[in-house]
Design a protein around this nucleic acid. Structure first.
Lengths: 204, 204
DNA sequence: GCAAAATGGTAACTACGGTTAACATATTCG
DNA sequence: CGAATATGTTAACCGTAGTTACCATTTTGC
């Protein structure tokens, strides 16, 4: 479910157990992306949820914990989506790669805040968490790289890594630029250009 | 001149007028990219220059001013490079576009800190400066968009904007990932994939 | 060579914001 | 119902880091 639909649905559910926590998370994502992690106060987050101030501490042990939970949520969604896109592709790397692009171009456009927070605010985390998460992100992209090399064995390892990194970067830069609110058009164009990168002629 | 070569050359020049200031700027860029603007203290910047603490205030009125000067320097270089790449192309948009990609793929790889700071830490600036700089960045990318539409009139405005934004995003994401220290290889691959994006088949 | 400007060091100030304390209300469930 | 738990509120705390004050030294230009 896209992040804004989820947020709306959660708010309508009143104050059930654990719901507040999820609302805080999604609103914090919005704020972090809009104003940056450093310039977003705990008070701001509370206000966005309709709960001024330190009430947030009832749900999270601190500001950093919110950011950490957010990025972990983001990673989790990415992992789920990647796996889901890979099943039922009859182990054909060509089909699998296209399925991945299909899914990711849609996911990133429909979940801009989650996607952007992960790559923009990793530095806000303490060394240790940052390392751990970076490793996990790398593992995720390695799946893409492996698939790409299967499809195009002529690519060097570096070339494949650059292509995959570029594909991720295209999504975040386009989202950050807020070029259009037409999510359908955005994801369609993104998809086309991601495929172009993955199929770009190799350089000697 | 690439940023690290410039830094080295400056340091060897001792303490001439205005030199210190430039050194502070470039070291600050390194730190901002490495640890983030928020987590880089004035003391850190001073230490990196061999001048502990508030001595930095002899050259800049404050921390934000350093960031501002950095992003403005970055923009200036981008403008210069864009212009330089466009002259002597006989007003052929096809050639001009390729010249732009040639130049930008090299520039971004040779000046990673300048390139990354501009897009990563814009949020650290006060509203007003941020707006102004964003506008200037947009103007810069509009030059690319105009050129691209000239070459490929079948592209919608949105499609062209997405392509150009993607090209910029590819550079920053690849630089941030630090995939290789072989700048030559990086820029060559980047170039190829940027061209692929700009020539990607349009979507209906 | 000397006055003036430039540059630097150390110590102290201060504001901001994350966090905690202390106290209140509402919800849940036996 | 009533105890326990969850959730909120306001006021106060306090560490950090950007900034300023003040004094020392070096560099520059007449």
């Amino acid at each position: 479910m896209a992040e804004y639909d989820e947020l709306e649905s959660l708010i309508s559910q009143g104050r059930k157990h654990g719901v507040r926590k999820r609302i805080i998370l999604l609103q914090a994502a919005r704020l972090f992306v809009e104003k940056g992690y450093a310039d977003t106060g705990i008070d701001d987050i509370g206000a966005a949820v309709g709960v001024s101030g330190p009430a947030v501490y009832r749900h999270f042990p601190g500001k950093q914990a919110i950011l950490l939970a957010l990025i972990e949520l983001s990673l989790e969604r990415l992992r789920e989506g990647t796996q889901a896109a890979l099943v039922d592709q009859d182990r054909e790397p060509q089909k699998a790669l296209i399925a991945l692009v299909d899914w990711f171009s849609r996911f990133s456009v429909e979940n801009p805040d989650l996607t952007l927070v992960m790559q923009a605010e990793l530095l806000g985390l303490p060394e240790q968490d940052r390392r751990r998460l970076k490793r996990q992100i790398r593992q995720l992209s390695e799946a893409w790289v492996g698939l790409l090399i299967e499809v195009r064995p002529e690519l060097s390892d570096l070339a494949a890594r650059i292509a995959v990194t570029s594909v991720m970067g295209m999504a975040t830069s386009v989202l950050a630029a807020r070029l259009s609110s037409d999510t359908r058009a955005l994801s369609v164009h993104l998809r086309a250009q991601m495929l172009a990168v993955l199929h770009a002629p190799a350089e000697p």
